[in-house]
Simulated scan of single mutants.
Amino acid sequence: MKHLKIFLLLFITAPLWLTAQKAMPKKVLMVGNSFTYFWNMPQMVNAMAAEDGYPMEVHQSTIGGATWEEHYNEKRGSQTRLLLKSKPWDYVILQDHSLSTIEAPGRFDEYGKKLAGAVVKAGAKPYLMMTWAYLSNPLMQDVISNKYNALAHELNTEAIPVGDIFMKARKLRPDLNFYFDDKHPSSIGSYLIGLIMYKALTGNSVKDVPDRLLSKDQRGEQVILSFIHHETGEFLRQLVEETEFTTKLIQE
């Protein structure tokens, strides 16, 4: 009889436990610089998750112009390594300075490995966020893509191909302005990056992501993160939707 009661208790509570486990939000930390935070890209990804009903929290550790070396050695006020220890992260996205692969490839490799090691030690999975070429020099992209992919392979992880898709969008739609200046993304560019990150992080479809993404400030007032013309949004969503991602973290 005692064993029967224990069995019944487990039978009743197990579904509740599984539901609670499933509802636990995935915790994501984005480490980088203005290439990550421009036009509130991390907040856009949070808004996409909320719109989709997917339990995910995206946080950031970003400093304008920061390199992985500065994040690792806690320079310029970086608190990345402290943040890694602050909570149990699921995934940490690492984005280096836009010129590191070209002007400092040794530093890129050394501190990419060190940061990824710190992420693993903290119990999270590291992923690399591939950057994109400058408006003035699209030939940069081959070097950037090769270095990110090679490092990801060495780390036994993956590089989310933001740069490759960004450049593809630029080639397919030269009428659209994906740049704010020579290197930073425009609001359209950041919306595209947000779509790429959300699709890569979750494996979920982005075809129904709205053109207008919303959030709230500390007072509960509505904040509009993006205004995208519907035709432009349709193109960007289709482009990302038709991209095959291997970083479908939702399946892990």
Rank of each mutant, 00 (worst) to 15 (best):
L8R: 08
D164R: 12
M1I: 09
R107A: 10
Y127H: 04
I165E: 02
V162P: 02
K147L: 05
Q95D: 09
D52W: 06
E252M: 09
G112N: 06
Q238E: 13
M24W: 13
L239Q: 04
A133K: 04
T101C: 13
G220P: 06
V58L: 11
L236K: 06
L172H: 03
H97G: 06
R212S: 10
Y134T: 09
Y179N: 05
S61Y: 05
E110F: 00
H184G: 06
L115T: 07
S187D: 14
Q79I: 05
Q21H: 10
D164Q: 14
E231Y: 01
N177I: 05
V31N: 07
A66D: 09
L128H: 10
Y72C: 01
I12F: 12
S34Y: 05
L99R: 13
D182W: 09
E74W: 02
W17T: 13
Y91W: 11
L139I: 08
H153R: 13
H71A: 00
S100D: 11
L94I: 12
N73G: 00
S136C: 04
H230K: 12
E234D: 12
G64C: 08
G220W: 11
T101D: 08
A152K: 08
Q43I: 02
M48H: 03
L155A: 07
Q21C: 11
H71C: 01
M30P: 00
D208Y: 08
I228D: 04
W39Y: 15
D142A: 15
F166E: 00
E69Q: 15
K207A: 14
A49C: 07
L236T: 03
D217W: 01
F178T: 00
E103V: 11
L214I: 14
N137H: 10
T36W: 00
S145N: 11
L214M: 13
P210F: 00
A159E: 04
M130I: 03
T36F: 03
E57L: 09
Y111F: 15
E154D: 15
H230F: 01
Q218T: 14
